[in-house]
Design a binder for these strands. Structure first.
Length: 871
RNA sequence: GGGGAUUUAGCUCAGUUGGUUAGAGCAGCUGCUUUACACGCAGCGGGUCGGGGGUUCGAGUCCCUCAGUCCCCACCA
């Protein structure tokens, strides 16, 4: 083996071997399925830490299940990401000085496809760098033919069931993207705005045009004066006595002269502003609802691009909304309607893609009725057929599901699944069908126009677990791999995606799409901020792979990630994984250098240390399996790490150097190390594969991916395990004594061990070597020697001091130690004198407390002797 | 406004149903050119478990309360 591990070439080599060798692929039919669909990243995306975390967790589970012998499918793919992708291509067009309208719809969509063919593979390529064992032969795209078929079928079905409807509704509207946005596509941000106080004259009051001429008016405070031409009422709170007399009267809308009523509605907050609100049903979601309650007219004064239309008035028509705001404010001032202006901090919505200020706009959109779909989805989680890990996410899910709003699914974009709704040009009949009808079913006319809108991206994503397996066709894949087992995703798309998938799965296939929803945190920077390009605090997984290797990245992520909370990372944290790689590589080199091949051995002939490592290996295998069953990826990583580093490297390898029978010791080491590599493989796929081959554990053409995952196997009396632990405790105690008394490791010392243990007599030789002792003498338990000592469970370890020791310093140290012990003893005595404790606490606890007390008293006795010795 | 999370060593976090003197990694300190590894080895120090109150023989763990930090949802015209 090379002295240094060349991660890059090893990783490339094995990934190619796995992929080309079909190791990621299985056929449906045989065995117990374990299936997972990847949360499809945006096709425009590049791999970020969030993906690295998400996919590392999945790959660990997937590789582990595969080794357990399950028939595994991990299905990869990408999302066509409507707005995001369209924006990327529009941006490119803009560089050519073109807009999408210049190309026309068909050409533009073709252009996006071309972009997808050229650049859409970026993230798919990057995912391979992580080592994902996804079955690339089944890779899907939410806009491919099969997924599109599923989308059309689902739309038609929902329409026929009366669950899809078209309605006039107030939606979030991005004037730049020219499309409706779902509520969750709007980001609210603090804004330093103004509050304009405007006088609306009461009808019939003294007429006047300028200045203070109106004596009788209502004062309205608004943050959006430009919507004034769309006002169709002013409202007060019904309980507001100040304005009770106004209700039912009419006021004159400034600048327009239009007459509008004063109404009362609970929505109005008496305390806020003046307690009088102008109601603009076409441009504010709350006003829209008020308008519905009071049958108010809805006057849409704005065009889709954010300019004012003719209903805003001739003067403002064609003006940009912000220009119009200035103009209207100026005109209000001019007309004497503007009372004063205040500063106001509020929240303003922005488009999550282009950051333009979002408008509330009245428009015709398609909606899905969600309540009927939500009901069974709530039930599925309640009855346990779908399980959240960790469980607490259930509440968040229920909370959202129980207050679910209808889902606006139409988008005024070109890139996406076009809505399969067709209007007859002749009779106007609307037909919804999976495929375009030849002629109008009502009048037989041949010309039908398809709805220009496309569907929200999530409308294809919510079908992902079954549309990717061939649904609606009853494919073998669908029959075998559906429903899937685990869905692994971050908390931020529980509503966008997870909840909707549960609904869709239940509604269209009659089965929940997955059994377990594993929610992990979000990756944050060291200060706990979200990683973002604008903050420049992102870590690039590819750079980390370059610097530290994919295995290092994966292992570090696994080790520092808890499902319970968000993960804070910085570059240094990935050194853990890199260091671990190096450690494993070095121990492998050590094993190789001995030139002992893996071979069988007779368990009955093994030494205690050899048996110990076998038991430890069983314990580790059991523990890791148990932890992974519970999705405790982090604890599992720690368990493997500890087994390899502490048990194998720090103890067993050291043992082999002085083992009585090296051949046998190494036979055991090879066995244990191969098992450790298998345990580690799900976390670090590359280096484990490489070493398993280098050490000849696997033949050419074989892969550790398909090796059997270790299960506890060695039937060895576990008392050996405890005995070796006792022995180690004694060795550690001696090392500590050496350090305390500054006896260098190069000096061989005289050791005395006061113990009642009989087995240790047979281990003296090994003990001597491990302690770097000139001699180890055994004396009966309880023997007290005037030498520095440490009490261990095996007995008391005495170190004979040959060199000079700084007596004063030692004395001081001993005094301190005694003081500390006195505290412990006092506490323990009080505890044991407490009858309640002795009577109520479990026997084992009490016995342990007694034992501990005795032990501390012994320590005190020893220390007091030493004190005499040094004074 | 509604909901959730979190507060344990200098830092990042474990601590499962209450039960030994609360753990790990990193950082720190001390020693070590021990022929696999200084990305290492050995050892050491460091915590009134956010504050207060309660239940209990016993609380980091359960209950109440206050405070800090963070996130999500809704949102004031």
């Amino acid at each position: 083996m090379d002295k240094h591990y060349d991660a890059k070439s090893v990783e490339q080599k094995w990934y190619k071997f796995w992929e080309e060798g079909g190791f990621f692929h299985e056929e449906p039919g045989q065995g117990t399925p374990y299936s997972v669909v990847i949360p499809p990243p945006n096709v425009t995306g590049i791999l970020h830490m969030g993906h690295a975390l998400n996919q590392t967790i999945q790959d660990i589970l997937v590789r582990w299940r595969r080794m357990q012998g399950r028939n595994v499918l991990w299905l990869p793919g990408t999302d066509h990401a409507g707005i995001a992708t369209q924006n990327v291509v529009e941006k490119a067009l803009r560089k050519e000085g073109k807009r999408r309208q210049d190309l026309g719809r068909e050409a533009f969509v073709e252009r996006v496809w071309e972009w997808k063919r050229q650049y859409g593979g970026t993230i798919v390529h990057q995912q391979r760098m992580l080592g994902n064992s996804t079955d690339w032969s089944r890779e899907r795209f939410t806009f491919d033919e099969g997924c599109s078929k599923a989308v059309a079928k689902v739309f038609a079905q929902l329409y026929n069931e009366g669950l899809v409807y078209k309605g006039n509704y107030i939606v979030n509207w991005c004037p730049r993207c020219g499309t409706a946005l779902a509520n969750d596509e709007v980001e609210h941000e603090p804004n330093h705005g103004h509050f304009w106080y405007v006088r609306y004259p009461v009808k019939g009051s003294a007429a006047g045009v300028k200045g203070e001429a109106y004596r009788d008016y209502v004062m309205v405070a608004t943050t959006r004066p430009e919507t004034l031409p769309g006002d169709t009422a002013v409202a007060v709170n019904p309980k507001d006595e100040r304005y009770a007399h106004l209700v039912g009267k009419e006021v004159i809308l400034p600048l327009t002269g239009r007459t509008i009523p004063v109404i009362s509605d609970d929505y109005v907050d008496k305390e806020f502003g003046t307690g009088i609100v102008k109601i603009t049903p076409a441009h504010d979601p709350n006003d829209f609802l008020v308008g519905k309650r009071h049958n108010l007219a809805e006057i849409n004064i704005m065009n889709g691009d954010g300019t004012m239309n003719e209903l805003a008035g001739a003067k403002y028509e064609g003006m940009d909304r912000f220009k119009c705001r200035e103009a209207i404010v100026a005109d209000l001032e001019e007309g004497g309607f503007l009372d004063h202006i205040e500063d106001l901090d509020n929240q303003v919505g922005h488009c999550y893609r282009c950051h333009e200020t979002v408008e509330s706009r009245l428009s015709k959109q398609w909606f899905v009725k969600m309540a009927p779909l939500a009901k069974p989805a709530i039930e599925a989680v309640k009855n346990g057929s779908v399980r959240f890990v960790p469980k607490r996410w259930e509440n968040i899910y229920f909370n959202w599901m129980e207050n679910i709003q209808d889902w606006c699914i139409s988008r005024q974009l070109w890139w996406g699944h076009r809505i399969p709704a067709y209007t007859c040009e002749k009779c106007g009949e609307l037909t919804v069908a999976e495929t375009a009808p030849d002629r109008c079913p009502k009048c037989g006319h041949a010309h039908l126009e398809q709805d220009p809108d496309v569907l929200d991206t999530w409308f294809s994503s919510w079908l992902w677990p079954f549309s990717t397996l061939g649904w609606p066709a009853e494919t073998d894949d669908l029959k075998f791999y559906y429903p899937t087992c685990d869905l692994v995703t971050a908390q931020d798309i529980i509503f966008f995606w997870v909840a909707r998938m549960v609904m869709a799965g239940l509604h269209f296939t009659g089965q929940a799409p997955f059994k377990n929803i594993v929610i992990h945190g979000i990756v944050r920077d060291a200060q706990g901020r979200k990683m973002s390009k604008s903050l420049g605090n992102s870590l690039d997984p590819l750079e980390l792979i370059e610097a530290y290797s994919a295995d290092a990245l994966r292992f570090s992520i696994a080790l520092i990630t808890s499902l319970e909370c968000d993960t804070k990372v910085n570059k240094e944290k990935f050194e853990i994984g890199r260091n671990f790689c190096t450690k494993i590589w070095n121990v492998a080199r050590f094993i190789e250098m001995q030139g002992v091949k893996r071979r069988d051995y007779d368990i009955s002939t093994l030494t205690a240390d050899e048996k110990h490592i076998l038991v430890a290996c069983d314990k580790a295998a059991e523990k890791v399996t148990e932890l992974l069953e519970q999705y405790r990826i982090q604890d599992g990583a720690l368990a493997v790490y500890d087994f390899i580093w502490t048990q194998i490297c720090d103890w067993y390898v050291e043992y082999t150097k002085d083992a009585p029978d090296k051949e046998r010791a190494f036979a055991v080491l090879n066995d244990v190390f191969f098992r450790a590599l298998k345990l580690l493989h799900p976390y670090m796929p590359f280096i484990t594969e490489e070493i398993a081959h280098q050490l000849g554990y696997l033949a050419e053409g074989e892969s550790i991916m398909k090796a059997e995952y270790p299960v506890p196997a060695n039937a060895i009396d576990p008392s050996v395990y405890d005995f070796v632990n006792l022995k180690r405790e004694a060795i550690t105690a001696l090392r500590a004594l050496r350090a305390e008394y500054k006896v260098p490791p190069s000096v061989f010392v005289k050791v005395t061990l006061a113990t009642g243990n009989k087995e240790i007599a047979g281990e003296l030789d090994g003990l001597k070597k491990a302690m770097r002792a000139e001699s180890v003498e055994l004396v009966p338990a309880g023997a007290e020697l005037p030498m520095p000592s440490k009490l261990t469970k095996l007995g008391t370890v005495y170190l004979s001091l040959e060199g000079l020791v700084d007596k004063a310093a030692e004395l001081k140290r001993i005094e301190g130690e005694l003081q500390k012990l006195a505290g412990f003893i006092k506490g323990a005595e009080a505890k044991l004198a407490n009858r309640q404790f002795v009577e109520h606490a479990p026997e084992a606890i009490v016995a342990e407390a007694r034992r501990k007390l005795e032990e501390n008293r012994d320590k005190v006795a020893q220390l007091e002797k030493l004190r005499k010795l040094f004074s």
